[in-house]
């Protein structure tokens, strides 16, 4: 029954996230509330890691599959995208590379500066 218990705890936290999403007037989705709550519960030992570990690892591992239905859904978006697809594609591709490069370089620079100070 251990795995069932783990799954129940995870779904319960997701449900709490849903409650916060409905009750608080903030544009924060249930999944993000749930992630924050789960982190708080783990840090305050309200939930211990071994109470969810295997099931959590399993769900995180199969996460990529969960995006396939949404990706296939792009089929239905083509009609609205068609008139604007050129600027939209350029912006989408360009900004993705830009944000990845800026975030990565900035973080790396900060970490290395810190390391030099330590040493």
């Amino acid at each position: 029954m251990r795995l069932l218990k783990q799954f129940s705890i995870i779904l319960a936290v997701a449900f709490l996230g849903e409650l916060l999403n409905v009750c608080l007037p903030l544009p924060v989705p249930a999944s993000v509330w749930g992630l924050a709550l789960m982190l708080i519960f783990l840090c305050t030992s309200i939930i211990r890691l071994e109470q969810i570990k295997e099931t959590a690892d399993f769900l995180v591992e199969i996460m990529p599959v969960m995006f396939i239905p949404a990706g296939v859904g792009l089929l239905t978006a083509w009609d609205v995208l068609r008139p604007v697809w050129i600027p939209v594609s350029v912006i989408t591709a360009g900004i993705t590379v830009l944000v990845m490069a800026v975030t990565g370089r900035m973080t790396q620079r900060m970490i290395r500066k810190g390391k030099r100070k330590d040493g």
Binding site: V13, A36, L59, M63, M66, A70, V72, G73, L75
Partner: peptide
């Protein structure tokens, strides 16, 4: 697509609990 989505939605259903579980590697 709607026909496919009718049963594929149960896979997407797990996305919220899976996102909640991203707290574990972070912890």
């Amino acid at each position: 697509y709607e026909t496919y989505q009718e049963s594929a939605k149960y896979i997407s259903y797990l996305l919220t609990p899976a996102t909640v579980c991203l707290a574990v590697p972070l912890y």
